[in-house]
Amino acid sequence: MKKEKPKLIREDGLRHDGRRPDELRPIRMEVGVLSNANGSALVEYGKTKVIAAVYGPRELHPRHISLPDRAVIRCRYHMAPFSTEERKNPAPSRREIELSKVIREALEAAVFTELYPRATIDVFIEVLQADGGTRTTGITAAALALADAGIPLRDLVAGVAVGKVDGVLVLDIDQLEDEYGEADMPVAMMPSLGKITLLQLNGVLTPEEFREALKLAEKGIKEIYRMQREALKKKYVEIKPEET
């Protein structure tokens, strides 16, 4: 059945969930959530919930897929079968294969891989609940997990998706806005360095709209970056020694 397109921008100019166009969803981050991984993080953008774990640097077998002058990064973006409305087949889809690649490249820009020749750094991203923006939530979580694993990074990487819905550019789109919107543009950056490591556009924008969309993404990423830094530091502040 073809569903009727819902109204995405209300009469009062707010979005279907009451957010302003340039407003993020409520974001929650927690670092060091898995004991087995060298680093891990859980990140939620609204109802989107993603967990990331990092193993390594560790030796890579078989040897012939290692690199003599730097570490390789292996990255898997995967959606849990229960993360979507209808059960998702757990076998990797073409979409997941593509996203694993662009996420790997988005993180690889930040990692000092040259410090660990012949080794691998493994990044596993599991989408536990999907409600739009899963890849950018995944990148934000993976960057925290890499930092938590003590892997040297040029900067953290933070991501957010900008969309165009009912003709309006909006920050941090959710699933409804992705499904019925005119464009979805995921962006990830190393915010301190002002560098873009992931950029995709799924939809149509005029060159002027694109400029505006990228500015909006930068604004959102700065806010997310601030939260990432807090989440990382919180891990150490919480273990306050008891007063003696």
């Binding site: 930040a110 040297p152 990074l153 900067d155 953290l156 915010p191 990382l232």
Partner: peptide, 8 residues
């Protein structure tokens, strides 16, 4: 001081 990746 506690610092994190990317901190100037």
């Amino acid at each position: 001081q506690l610092v994190i990746p990317g901190e100037v």
